[in-house]
Write a protein that binds this DNA or RNA. Structure first.
Length: 881
RNA sequence: AGGACCGUAGCUCAGGGGGAGAGCGCUUGCUUGACACGCAAGAGGUCAGGAGUUCAAAUCUCCUCGGUCCUACCA
């Protein structure tokens, strides 16, 4: 009748078994129906990626939310997918081609893309495969990729639409150039680091003088070749005489104006700035303002071009060394000093970013940002934790236009077509562009389709991810299809605060622009996973454990629990393997609880003992109390707190208390009523635990009762909360304290656990000992009788719970001195406590201002303390004799 | 430089004006007929420091010190 239960839980086999069971039965699949929808779209990981600890955390949380929603009877859908990560993927493909001896430059665009797709098919699915190991209940039939044909088309449609709305434009701007990847980067893709460098002081001769000089300070002497001005502060007394004059650039002898601007910091260096509008954003702005020439001296790859005159074809860092030497030789270098400055690096290639003037496509963000700011500030979208609203607000109010073009091949190619007359047409296909061109420019009579040249660039990856919650349901191309209308807006988004602007903000903008509706109701920001030293886990540092190895060691359930336990929303998560160990231990504990319960033999004839009946009633209430707490935690997205509550309920209340109370003596059967209650409780506990530890809960749930084929705990209903009888809980708490005291006395006085004792209590006050609980005390502490005491008992061990005094006649000589000491300490503590309460009560201000409830509470504290003090004194008196 | 958040037990964190909490770790004792990945009992805190508001402050306000993160970037 019962399946054989192995003595040891084997997670590896079990987890694979249940995952394929769930998947093959289509339990993850969702389609629109009449139920309330619950939907999460996965933050799409890179196709190039492998699972790291950040993913583990993020996806575990999503799975918890989805599984719970599913059990709550909602139509739950978790949409998986990946993004194409243009820079990272292209870099990987280029590298792998190079290993084969193929240079990207020798390939046509189409040839290269064939290789890229090949690479994607081979390596792109790893991370989604790994998510299955974690137990992720994604609807795999809906797996999306940002370059799927429908997704691709959505991106192109949006580009065209925004272009026609006048929000997308092409312009020359100072952008962040990655000379290694040979592409522009957005501001968000640049990471600044402190770098030890040198500040070079270089003197320029003042034009028209024999020996008059002006000295500037720079960290980039190589850019001297692109200088088009020298700038000083208009009020700087040192340079008044130079206003309106000119200076000669060393080595190349170009004559440039000396201009004045209040932008200059007089304190820095010499208070004199060389201006290179082509290679520095601030200089560029100065150049615009003062109408300076722009001399761009760099090639795409960071080497110098012929405009530099000197060092043509050499790398910028080589040139820095060489020009410094040359300036020194010719007496232009006045001094060098060490200097720490912040330098931008490419997030992807780690190359030093070159600020560069370039023609790029931009998206005007201001009109999109305003409504997106409002929905967050007025809590239409909730942020957890809410502190991120501040950061969001700041960014949205200071939003800059988004550079959306990238000089790459892997990605969504910009649908812009250039005509021979250098005009540009934005259209979905070359044919369409051709037709428009004919209409728009009748003068181009001989225009042929082949004359149109499509823009070479692709779009920033985020320009596809920002549509994710809409495009995964094909809601851009078909705004009224059943999926988008049913699942959108999605429920929760779980992501890292690092991509608040990259992604979250932009999704909100896109949602409002294309659906007139928010994309999700709640955003849960996870913490950043750090190592024990507080460093962010990263591939570069090599301080991140391999999640798959962790799962092998501790089981997926164990790792999930480890991730969840200390991860309050938005806080950093200092990861420690010990947490996974704790998860594994917990799994072992539940497993053994199953073995215990299923090992019992049930006998319908025997009556239910009083202790079991009472314990079951208590546990029923305890369970509901916990459910209330868990519900509250979930409502606040406090997942780790919710799990901890369940953990303690299962381990402490269920295993350590309930099971120990109802456990029948060795090889004796258990009564039917208790047995059924315990099985019911166990069933409920497993259901509450299932979202956190899906695998072992399924395994045990299937063992617990005979289940039909097609049944799964995944689909079992989330327990309903019933009312809680607080008196019951208080009574049990009192009982528990009595039991702990007795156990403690046994240990402190070396009384064998097997020795039978007697327990007497002082019945004079209002006793807190409820008769129903006496049988529990008797069972768990091996006392033979529990009675009110009548006469003084000599040689008794005593303890006090609330204001009831308990006596245990000592079976042997106990440590009198020790006992006296403990009583004395307790007495002193109580006296101190009483005096603090009395001070408060005697304070007239307190009696006048405090609420009656508080005063009543203080009076009760006083009465309790007085009673305890009296009892302690009496006991001490007896012991002194 | 500007802003946000945070300093509570050895560690990681809850709590948020009226009796200091949890998990892990630690100590002690246990072959307790489910579990040593365990059972039981314990120890451990001037709630960072200072001032103020209040009858009452870990909690509210201000200052100091320390930490984390975000934004901007000075040649």
């Amino acid at each position: 009748m019962t399946k054989e239960i192995p003595s040891r839980y084997n997670p590896e086999d079990t987890e694979d078994k249940w995952y394929s069971y769930w998947e093959s039965h289509g339990f993850f699949h969702s389609k629109p129906d009449t139920r309330e929808p619950y939907c999460i779209v996965i933050p799409p990981p890179n196709v190039t990626g492998v699972l790291h600890m950040g993913h583990m955390l993020n996806n575990t949380i999503q799975d918890v939310l989805v599984r719970r929603a599913r059990m709550q009877g909602k139509n739950a859908l978790w949409v998986p997918g990946t993004d194409h990560a243009s820079i990272a993927t292209e870099a990987k493909v280029v590298a792998s081609l190079r290993e084969k001896g193929i240079e990207k430059s020798s390939l046509t665009r189409d040839e290269f893309l064939r290789y890229a797709w090949e690479w994607k098919e081979k390596h792109g699915g790893i991370i989604l495969q790994q998510l299955r190991k974690l137990g992720a209940s994604c609807d795999w039939s809906r797996t999306k990729f940002t370059m799927d044909p429908d997704m691709y088309e959505s991106v192109i449609d949006v580009f065209i639409d925004l272009y026609h709305k006048g929000l997308i434009y092409k312009g020359i701007r100072m952008i962040n150039w990655d000379p290694e990847a040979l592409t522009a980067l957005s501001d968000e893709e640049v990471v600044y680091k402190d770098v030890q460098s040198t500040l070079y002081y270089v003197r320029y001769k003042v034009y028209g003088t024999e020996d008059e000089w002006i000295t500037i300070a720079t960290t980039r002497p190589e850019t001297i070749l692109g200088d088009t001005a020298i700038c000083v502060h208009p009020e700087d007394e040192r340079y008044q005489h130079l206003h309106g004059r000119k200076a000669i650039i060393p080595l190349i002898d170009r004559v440039v104006p000396i201009i004045t601007d209040e932008y200059i910091d007089r304190e820095f260096g010499t208070g004199c700035l060389k201006v290179t509008p082509a290679h520095d954003i601030n200089d560029y702005n100065l150049g615009l303002k003062h109408k300076l020439d722009v001399v761009d001296i760099f090639n795409d790859n960071g080497t110098l071009n012929e405009k530099a005159i000197l060092f043509v074809g050499e790398d910028r860092f080589e040139v820095r060394k060489k020009i410094t030497e040359k300036l020194r030789q010719k007496g232009f270098l006045v001094k060098e000093e060490p200097y720490v400055n912040r330098i931008g690096f490419s997030e992807r290639t780690d190359a030093v970013i070159e600020p560069r003037l370039s023609q790029q496509w931009f998206l005007n963000m201001k009109p999109l940002a305003k409504p997106a700011l409002d929905v967050v500030m007025n809590d239409t979208i909730h942020f957890f934790p809410p502190k991120f609203k501040n950061t969001y607000k700041y960014w949205m109010e200071n939003v800059k236009d988004w550079c959306i073009s990238r000089q790459l091949w892997w990605g969504h190619r910009i649908p812009a077509y250039y005509l021979p007359n250098r005009e540009v047409i934005v259209a979905k296909t070359p044919e369409e562009a051709y037709q428009i061109a004919l209409k728009q420019y009748p003068e181009l009579k001989d225009l042929r389709l082949e004359d149109l040249q499509q823009d070479e660039d692709v779009l920033d990856t985020w320009f596809s991810s920002w549509l994710w919650p809409i495009s995964v349901f094909d809601g851009i191309r078909h705004p009224h299809n059943p999926d988008i209308e049913y699942y959108y807006p999605t429920s929760d988004l779980v992501t890292a605060p690092e991509i608040l602007f990259f992604w979250v903000a932009r999704m909100i903008m896109a949602g409002l622009e294309y659906r007139r509706e928010i994309p999700f109701r709640n955003v849960y920001f996870t913490g950043i996973v750090r190592d024990k030293l507080g460093r962010k886990m990263s591939k570069q540092l090599g301080n991140s454990p391999d999640p798959i190895e962790l799962i092998k060691k501790y089981s997926a359930d164990g790792v999930r629990m480890g991730m969840l336990l200390t991860s309050p929303a938005g806080n950093d998560l200092p990861f420690d393997e010990a947490l996974c160990e704790q998860g594994r231990n917990f799994a072992n504990k539940i497993w053994n609880a199953l073995r215990l319960v299923k090992g019992w033999e049930m006998d319908e004839k025997i009556p239910q003992p009083n202790y079991s009946a009472t314990a079951c009633k208590w546990f029923e209430n305890r369970l509901n109390k916990s459910l209330q707490i868990v519900e509250d935690h979930f409502g606040k997205y406090r997942i780790s707190d919710a799990l901890m509550e369940v953990y303690r309920l299962m381990w402490d209340d269920f295993c350590s208390w309930l099971l120990e109370i109802v456990k029948p003596p060795f090889q004796q059967p258990i009564d039917k009523s208790t047995y059924q209650s315990v099985i019911n409780f166990f069933d409920t506990l497993l259901r509450i635990l299932h979202p956190f530890m899906p695998f072992i809960t399924e395994e045990i749930w299937q063992h617990l009762r005979t289940r039909a084929e097609n049944e799964s705990i995944m689909l079992a209903p989330w327990p309903k909360i019933h009312e809680v009888d607080e008196t019951m809980l208080n009574d049990f708490e009192f009982t528990r304290e009595v039991i702990v005291n007795i156990r403690s006395l046994r240990q402190n006085h070396n009384i064998s656990p097997k020795k039978i004792l007697e327990l007497y209590y002082n019945d004079s006050g209002q006793s807190h000992l409820s008769p129903n609980f006496e049988s529990i005390i008797a069972k768990l502490t091996k006392v033979s009788k529990i009675e009110p005491f009548t006469a003084n008992i000599e040689n008794a061990l005593t303890f006090i719970v609330k204001s009831t005094e308990f006596y245990i006649p000592a079976p042997q000589n106990f440590d009198l001195e020790n006992e006296r000491k403990k009583l004395q300490e307790e007495l002193e503590y109580n006296e101190r406590f009483l005096s603090s309460v009395e001070t408060k009560l005697n304070n007239e201000g307190f009696r006048k201002n405090a609420s009656p409830k508080v005063i009543e509470n203080e009076l009760r504290k006083k009465a309790d303390a007085e009673a305890r003090i009296q009892l302690l004194r009496e006991k001490l008196d007896i012991l002194k004799e």
